[in-house]
Computed example of a mutant assay.
Amino acid sequence: MSGQNDSPYYFVPNPSRHPVTASIGLLIMLGSFGLWLNDTPWAPYTMFAGLLWLLFVLWHWFGDAISESEGGMYGKRVDLSFRWSMSWFIFSEVMFFGAFFGALFYAREIAMHQLGSLDYKLIWPDFSAVWPNEGPAALAGHFKAMVPFPVPTINTALLLSSGATLTVAHHALRDDHRNKAIAWLAATVVLGFAFLCMQAFEYIHAYNELNLTLASGIYGSTFFLLTGFHGFHVFLGGTMLSVVLVRLIRGHFNPDHHFAFEGAAWYWHFVDVVWLGLYVVVYWL
C-alpha cells in the first residue's frame, strides 16, 4: 500500500466475480494438463487458453486491489489482515511441498527397501534397492538420473542471487531510494526468468537425452512433480514481482507502506528455500 488511513474499521469491498472466474481458468488449465499427459491432441491448446484466461482475471483482480490501495481505502487492520493472510498462504505452500517431499522420502526409504527385502526376492529376484530405481519390472525402460552439474547448480546460483537483489531492493525502498529499488527489483525479475529458461533447457535435456520422463517410475514422477511445481511457483512469484516493479515505476509505495512489495518478497524467499531443499534432496542425495 502506498498510503493508509487511520480508520479503526475494516474496508468491505463490493462483491467480486474474480474468485469464480479465476476458478474457471484453473479448472480448464489443470483439466487440460491431465488430458495432455494422456496424449489428447487438443489439450495443450486448451491448457494455454486456460492459462491466458487466468492471467486476464488476475490482471483485473490485481487492478481492483491496487485501485483500492491507492485510493486510501485500506487501514491498519486491513494491512494486518493482509499480513496474516499471506503468512497462512505461505504455510499452506509449506504443507503442499511437504507432501511431495514426504512422497519422495516414502518411496526412497520405505517402499524401495521393502521391495528389496527377502519377502519379494521370489517375485523380483533381480531387483536392487538402489536409488534411483527403474522399478521391479522396469516398465519405464532405462533412463539416466539427473546430476547436480551444471544446470541445477547454475539455477541455485540464480535463485540465491535473486534473493540478494530483492533484499537490496527492499532496503532501497525503505530508504526512499526509488530508482535504486527499481533497478535491483528488475534484476530480481530477470534472474527469475533466467531460472525458468534454464529449467526448460533441463527438461528438454531430460526427455531427449536421458530418457527421463514422467513415466520413468517413481523417480521420474517425483522429480518432475517437485521441480515442476517449484518452477510454477517461480513463475507465480515472478508475476507478483513484475506487478510490484510496474507499480514502483508508476510511483506507488512509500518507505512506510508497501506491503505488496513485502508480501511478494516473502513468497520469493520461500521459493528460494524450497529450491535449496530440492537441490540437496533431489540432485545430491
Rank of each mutant, 00 (worst) to 15 (best):
G3D: 12
N5D: 15
S7I: 13
S7T: 14
P8W: 11
Y9M: 06
V12N: 09
R17L: 14
P19F: 10
T21L: 12
I24E: 03
L26K: 02
G31N: 04
G34F: 06
Y45G: 11
Y45M: 10
L54P: 01
W61L: 08
F62V: 11
G72K: 04
L80V: 04
R83L: 04
W84K: 12
M86A: 10
F96P: 02
G98I: 05
G98P: 04
A99N: 03
A103V: 05
F105T: 10
L118V: 13
Y120D: 15
P125E: 15
D126Q: 10
S128I: 15
N133S: 14
G135N: 02
A140M: 10
A145P: 06
V147H: 15
F149Y: 14
P150K: 03
P152R: 00
T153M: 06
T153S: 06
I154Q: 08
I154N: 07
T156P: 01
S161K: 02
A164C: 12
H171W: 14
L173C: 07
L173I: 08
K180R: 15
I182H: 00
A186F: 08
A186W: 05
L191I: 08
F193V: 12
A200F: 09
F201V: 07
F201D: 06
Y203Q: 11
Y207A: 08
G217L: 04
Y219S: 01
Y219H: 01
S221R: 08
T222E: 08
H230K: 06
H230D: 09
V234S: 00
L236A: 09
G238S: 04
G238L: 00
V243N: 00
L245Q: 07
H252Q: 12
H252Y: 15
G263W: 05
W266M: 13
D272S: 05
L276A: 11
V281C: 09
